[in-house]
Amino acid sequence: MAQIALCCMSHSPLLNLPGPSRELLDDIDAALTGARDFVAEFDPELVVTFSPDHYNGFFYKVMPPFCVGTSAQGVGDYGTHAGPLDVPKNLADELAAAVLEADVDIAISASMDVDHGTVQPLQNLFGDPTTRPVIPVFINSVATPLGPLRRSRLLGAAIGGYLATLDKRVLVVGSGGLSHDPPVPTLATAPPAALERIVHGAPMSTEARMARQSAVIDAARAFAHGESTLQPLNPVWDRTFLEILDQGWLSDLDGWSNPFIAREGGNSAHEIRTWVAAFAALAASGEYRTAQRFYRDAPELIAGFGIRTAVLA
């Protein structure tokens, strides 16, 4: 009989870059310490991550809504781990087959590139992201068109149904959100060089990566000082979303349309899909209760930053 626990958290490249105040970083690190202690006590034998990608591993040339990695490696963006993750191929294959059997369409990748969206939470929780076997599950949260939010709930429920059959301690991790609208290229707005990247996955030179990093720092500084045209954070919306998760009312989110999510939380708020999938995976084994509840609207990170841990009730 499996034991399932959950840890969801926001991610931000700015956690690893100059700019955020020491007070903010200390506040978040204190919350992350609580999450690390929770995970250390649970001592998972398997980790399943639900995370987005930021045009580092998935591109418009082929953009699946969902994908399971049967082998994966970090790309090393924003100072995160570069190199292979410990993916148990047999379990990943079984998981993908179980999801398809549950009538949820999913792709597989035998060589998945994952970025900070996947790796940063693993590093925050374990230090070395290769210390535990991990199955990465990609949820498209950036490249339109996007499916309805309920599909992410159904994906999580299908994966949770499979995980419940394992005789293991399994930690499900959701990475992303909450309200944020950073400058992300789109098919409609990307200049030629960026278009080549988001469509065909053209590799970025070291110079291009450094330029992007500098642009992110500049954008965050302007946003934090109220000198940006980016959509403001929405703490009220963030807290409403978190309350729905805390209460276990996951199906209530089925009515949240994609235009509503973008209008209230920003275009990148679609990353809440990862949280919905993770909580649905936990809920597949029964009622749950959230333990750690951290939230802070953090303009210096261009993000509403949340952390939740949860166990079965």
Rank of each mutant, 00 (worst) to 15 (best):
A283N: 08
P232F: 06
V173S: 11
F294D: 04
S12C: 04
V75D: 00
G74S: 08
A313D: 15
H270A: 14
L242T: 00
A30Q: 15
Q213K: 13
P13D: 07
L24M: 05
F241V: 13
A283R: 13
E287S: 15
W249A: 15
R263Y: 12
P191H: 07
W249N: 15
A284S: 11
M9K: 02
F138K: 11
M210E: 15
L125S: 05
G74W: 01
S21C: 02
E300M: 01
R22D: 13
G76W: 08
I139W: 06
D252Q: 14
T33C: 10
S109V: 05
T274S: 10
V114L: 05
D37P: 05
P191T: 13
D105V: 09
A92D: 04
R296E: 03
L25P: 00
T33N: 10
S12P: 05
W249I: 07
S268K: 11
H11A: 07
D238L: 02
P133V: 07
L24K: 05
L195Q: 12
P232H: 04
A202V: 14
M210W: 11
G19F: 12
G160H: 02
P191Q: 06
P136S: 05
S109F: 09
S285M: 12
F126D: 06
D43Q: 09
A215S: 12
Y162R: 02
I159K: 02
A277E: 01
P44H: 02
L24R: 02
E264I: 06
M204Y: 08
G160E: 02
L301K: 00
V184Q: 04
L146K: 12
P88I: 08
S51I: 04
W256R: 09
V173E: 01
A215M: 07
T274K: 01
R273F: 07
D238A: 06
L122D: 04
L230D: 12
F50K: 00
H81E: 05
V184T: 14
D238I: 02
F42N: 11
D115R: 03
C7N: 10
V173P: 03
F42L: 07
D113F: 09
V173C: 12
A157D: 13
Q73H: 14
P191G: 11
F58N: 12
T189L: 10
P183C: 09
D238H: 01
L100C: 10
L187T: 06
A35R: 01
W249P: 01
R263H: 15
L32C: 06
N90I: 10
N234P: 04
A262K: 14
E300H: 00
L178W: 00
A280F: 06
S251Q: 13
R293K: 13
M1F: 10
I307A: 00
R197D: 08
P145Y: 05
V137Q: 03
L230F: 10
Q292P: 03
D26K: 13
P84Y: 00
A193D: 15
V142H: 09
Y78D: 01
A97H: 11
P20Y: 06
D86W: 08
C7T: 13
P235R: 04
R36A: 07
L154Y: 09
N258R: 14
L233T: 01
R289V: 07
G83T: 12
R239D: 10
A158Y: 02
G306E: 02
V172P: 00
L242F: 01
T229E: 15
T206E: 14
